[in-house]
Amino acid sequence: MNSFIPDWTNIAIGSLMLFVPIALFLRARLGLVKTLLISIARMGVQLFLVGFYLKYLIEWNNLPLNILFLLFIIIAGAHTVGSRSDLKLKFIFPPITIGFFVGYIFSSFFFIFAFFAGGDFLDARYLIPISGMLIGNSLTSAVVGIRSFFKNMNDNKDSRNYLIASGASLKTATSESFQMSIKDAFMPMIANISAIGLIWLPGTMTGQIIAGQDPSDAIKYQIMIVVGYFTCCVITVFVSLWLARRSAFDDFGQLKTNVYKV
């Protein structure tokens, strides 16, 4: 079963539908049109490049090269999260990068030895797209978790200090902010997971079904991906927050003011 592949003219004509959101944005005077256009242009260029280099990565299937590529997406992911965090990159980038490494390595371990037992997860055609899913799907929750934690930290200074003055350790005094930010980060993801298959068909299985795969096989990939990115993301956020919390306070137990972007 060969699937239908649209040609570039079709895509260009179809994309004209964007005139409607652009017109609506202009009408509402949101000042977002420039950002929107840049985002769409970026998407086009990035996907064009991805299509190009994925072709070669998969063709060459060279493990050191693949690992180099994985390093690149982890660092790019950590950079994306860090730069959307209201925190100075110098402060937040190292904890997030380590968090991503731990989360990604842990979950890919299960892909290698469990999900792909008998297969070869390290084969570029599996490794590259699945790793991209694991990290890419972690971004939003990681951004929300880290933003929420440091916003809470700033908002609840007085009640935190009251706990510290009463003899609480930093860990205890920040535990409520920690709980709230973890909830903020994962409630949407958990709600989303419960709606998979009911309201929306996520990307992986959609892609496989379009490519002609039997839907009952396509869901296997989907389950692996969801379990994988959820685990990767939770570990990433916990590790990043643990590390960031350690370095965010001075010897008096006070939040360093220079961790925030001015």
Partner: peptide
């Protein structure tokens, strides 16, 4: 100072002007 502050805090009760607590979700 940095070294003594935790010892000192252990012997103090502080009552801030507005005794506020976080809207903790679980406690």
């Amino acid at each position: 100072n940095e070294e003594n502050i935790y010892e000192i805090r252990k012997q103090i009760s502080w009552l801030p002007q507005n005794l506020d607590v976080m809207k903790a979700p679980l406690h």
